[in-house]
Design a protein around this nucleic acid. Structure first.
Lengths: 135, 135
DNA sequence: CTTAAATTAGAAACAGTTCTAAGATGGCGG
DNA sequence: CCGCCATCTTAGAACTGTTTCTAATTTAAG
């Protein structure tokens, strides 16, 4: 996809969701859409400051909350303490690296055994091992 | 199982693991063994204080670390921030209640699709829905 | 232009966990 | 049964990392 086209998509997403478009918000959403690394606030803030020197943490939090409310991204927590954000809205599982803690998406597959167990609304498989980079 | 017999089991576990037996440690392990509620430190501390008025949080932490090291319990974190402790050492999955946050064990079942995906060492299914109590 | 809404820096709140120094105690050897 | 001493417990302060708040300033968009 051309870069300009991707940018257009992001703008449309903002417009459609009724969220005001600011450079900071654009950057955050773009980062989440182009990198599947499930960034934490800390990571996004650091990345943002490489371009936008002097961004406030509060802005990152505000932006993420706005994007979650608009349904453009999802928040989740895994093991640790810091919330992580995911722009992949498709159903999927997660792979967590034992060594570096990186989180990768794993394409969805059904787990028939999971459905049977009572009042299950959703489920997810957490896979653990060493990621390709750490090996 | 008779209560006395259960108590004997716990004492044997301490002895075998070379962990000194104290009333606080006994209580914590007993609590984890008899209730499958995956208590947090906060919960254990509250429960402990109902009997042992004036127990220190540090003791709960020390005890849990000692029990983990001895291999008598396992630590894990789910969503939130606080660590949870589990005396069920068998492999199993977890069911989390959307409403009250309770965590229940779910008997193990294999997920063949999970094994295939790369360098997976372990995996676990997290099921979500409403627990029987909340319905 | 106007104005409601967003951004900023930094302080403050918050939760979970660890640390400290003083006092208590389990379990062994005698 | 007794005393010793390494180990454990205690209370509360301190620490760590995450998130929210504040009040002043800037900015997007009609």
């Amino acid at each position: 996809m051309l870069k300009a086209a991707a940018a257009r998509k992001i703008e449309e997403a903002f417009e459609h969701a009724g969220v005001r478009r600011t450079p900071q918000r654009f950057f955050v959403l773009e980062h989440l859409l182009t990198r599947p690394d499930h960034a934490t606030v800390e990571e996004l803030w650091t990345a943002l400051n490489k371009r936008h020197a002097r961004a406030s943490r509060a802005t990152v939090y505000n932006t993420l909350h706005a994007l979650v409310q608009a349904g453009l991204i999802r928040e989740f927590t895994l093991d640790g303490k810091a919330a992580r954000y995911d722009a992949n809205l498709e159903q999927h599982h997660h792979f967590v690296c034992d060594r570096c803690g990186a989180v990768e998406d794993v394409e969805w597959f059904d787990v028939p055994a999971a459905q049977g167990a009572g009042n299950v609304r959703t489920y997810e498989v957490i896979l653990r091992g060493e990621c390709s980079r750490c090996r």
